[in-house]
Amino acid sequence: TGSPVPAPTATLVRVVKNANTLGIAIEGGANTRQPLPRIVTIQKGGSAHNCGQLKVGHIILEVNGISLRGREHKDAARIIAEAFKTKEKDHIDFLVVEPG
């Protein structure tokens, strides 16, 4: 059809650190086919699964307000790992979009 594709809406998801692991697997990052990290697995029993709002396929735009745009895979993974590790906050805020 000729209908315009609606712009994907970003959703803020708060994951409370209520398990020993975050429990997500991500792929992608700058200079890959998937330029922003995408969630490929959510493990049962992890904080992300317990939160109930993160989904496989979600693309992560920001972590605690830190943009992941332009960051290579390892850097994006490090930011997420540090957000989970820090004792400053009992949660992580993910800004995610459904893939378009």
Binding site: T21, I24, E27, G29, N31, R33, Q43, I80
Partner: peptide, 15 residues
């Protein structure tokens, strides 16, 4: 003709 993807696939990290 299909455009070729030249960017590499990403590794996967479990967090």
């Amino acid at each position: 003709r299909e455009k070729r993807l030249t960017l590499p696939p990403s590794e996967i990290t479990l967090l």
